[in-house]
């Protein structure tokens, strides 16, 4: 264990992409993020009724999880719920919507159409077979359409993933590192060098170039 890493508060964890998260701070941020998932008002077909509407309505009440603040603008939304079939004409628009969202952003694919194309797989010239062919998806909720309770389970799973810092995101993707103030005289590069040493000694693997390139 190096000198530098001991001086920092909390535990240092490397994350994919090569940035550094301070986990004491990280816990608070992840807690906040997981409890404040504002979905984008977006629904393409049947699932929108169950997942976006019925789950927000009085019986099921998405608000209990703090997720009733549906934002019509992708800039302000955290959660993209793909509720319904994605077809080839819509695919570029879905990608655009995802790109317009601000990091950190999470994606839940609900219903068989968004997972795999559902009933529209064979003999079909139009339906994309699963939204994950276009954008990365964090949580899949099966059903055709899923019940609101099923969707809530998906939300809870996403919350768990966020709290554990286990966002299923490929390295190199746009992600803003969260940094606490560094003690004087220590630079980020030093920490990274030390961390890499630490990791390599533990895991006995060489980290690829992506570990350094992805630093935000």
């Amino acid at each position: 264990m190096g000198l530098i890493t001991e001086k920092l508060p909390g535990i240092i964890e490397p994350v994919p992409g090569g940035s550094v998260l301070l986990s004491s701070m990280d816990a608070v941020i992840n807690w906040a993020r997981s409890n404040s998932l504002w979905p984008l008002t977006f629904g393409t077909s049947c699932c929108a009724i169950e997942v976006m509407m019925a789950s927000g309505a009085a019986r099921h009440d998405l608000a209990r999880f703090g997720a009733e603040v549906t934002r019509p603008s992708p800039r302000q939304a955290d959660l993209l719920v793909i509720a319904g079939t994605i077809v080839r004409k819509m695919a570029p628009r879905l990608k655009l919507l995802y790109e317009q969202m601000a990091e950190p952003r999470y994606v839940i694919a609900t219903g068989s159409c968004a997972i795999s194309g559902g009933p529209f797989i064979y003999n079909n010239y139009s339906t994309v077979r699963g939204a994950d062919e276009i954008i990365p998806v964090d949580v899949y909720v099966p059903g055709c359409p899923p019940r609101p309770e099923g969707f809530f389970y998906g939300i809870l799973q996403l919350q768990r993933l966020i709290r554990e810092g286990e966002s299923i995101r490929r390295p190199g993707e746009r992600r803003k590192p969260v940094l606490a103030a560094l003690p004087a005289g220590i630079t980020l590069d030093q920490i990274q060098a030390e961390l890499r040493e630490l990791l390599e000694s533990k895991a006995q693997v060489k980290l690829g170039a992506s570990a350094t390139a992805g630093r935000g």
Partner: peptide, 25 residues
Amino acid sequence: RLGPMRVGPHGIFQTVADTIKLLFK
């Protein structure tokens, strides 16, 4: 309906979570 319920008793820390999230967005 009930409104925020999960973050703290009766969801009183809901807006705290929202604020922190927005700060780091």
